[in-house]
Design a protein around this nucleic acid. Sequence first.
DNA 1: TGTTCCATGTAATAAGTTACATGATTTA
DNA 2: TAAATCATGTAACTTATTACATGGAACA
Lengths: 188, 188
Amino acid sequence: MSLRHILLGMLSRPHSGYDLKKQFNQSLRNFWNAELSQIYPQLQKLEKDGLLTSKQIASSNGPPRRVYTRSDKGRRELLSWLANGPNVGEERISYLAQVFFLSELTDTAAAIRFMQELRDHMMSWLESLQEVERRWQAEDPRYPDALADEDFYPQLTLALGLRKVRCNLDWCDECIARLKRRCAADFS
Amino acid sequence: MSLRHILLGMLSRPHSGYDLKKQFNQSLRNFWNAELSQIYPQLQKLEKDGLLTSKQIASSNGPPRRVYTRSDKGRRELLSWLANGPNVGEERISYLAQVFFLSELTDTAAAIRFMQELRDHMMSWLESLQEVERRWQAEDPRYPDALADEDFYPQLTLALGLRKVRCNLDWCDECIARLKRRCAADFS
DNA sequence: TGTTCCATGTAATAAGTTACATGATTTA
DNA sequence: TAAATCATGTAACTTATTACATGGAACA
């Protein structure tokens, strides 16, 4: 039941469903994603449960926007989620499932290609995170340790993103090297 | 649509639904989990689609078991999943979402407690992975690089598990240190 | 004049969780 | 004799994805 709480977290200040989707695409995408078709009904449900309130507001450029605000009850719900302690052990990483079954491929060369493709993904992911960090650093002299709380904690998640992607990259390199050695052993 | 393919991957040799659940609990849990109430219907569906066949077999100890075997069509389906390349960018890590919103807590001390709890989880996770590795190493002299393919690729996922958990631990330590510095700054 | 962005939604389907139901065998 | 393990499933519900539907404004 995490999306519910994530939306509550994002609504520390008022936003529309469309805004929230943009935030997913920008800053939360490293650990969560949600489609508009899931966000809109969930916001409606949260309002029905009294955790949010909404009002329609005219927009300067496009159609009118429905803007949601977290209620006190909503804030308490968010706090109880955090107070329950960290939710660990629910990760789903489908590329790891793929690696697990790579022996099904006909030859080691195909497995190497798979790992190389994975490495490429990780590399471009790393670059995009580095770009985010570079920009943030350039725009805010308080980066990273003097940031206000609302930015400091998100920065911690960026820091883990960077560490993790580097870790994945190193692992890909290790795998490719080990696979190449196995490949060489096949012909001897 | 990953569970479908994961089950196909696991059925390179015949297993019952109950067997498969045990495998999830033992070796796949680091990147995927599924409940029996999801596994049984999914196996039935895969059989209906012609990707598996099954037969009921009497058991020595308990009730009779329905054992599933992958068909040729099932194997081709698995291969096309692998051939599509790595599935990246679909990760959901709810503890990171929690960290993202930790500014909602009333004080930094509570955030430090949260991170310490997370660190404890990571530590016990690391210990369990190390135990798995220790046992494997003791039982099989081919560990890790001379393992047969069916074990070698799973070992690669264990290797990433170890790296990743260590990475998370280091990050937790960094976060706690940075938070303590902020906390000290609050009182100055 | 076609594409992208803004903005909100519904419908149908798939995937996943929790609770329920059954009943034999093995272990403490 | 109580609990755990073996073994398979259904029912109700929640969560998430994909496809569909609408329509104005900005841009190229």
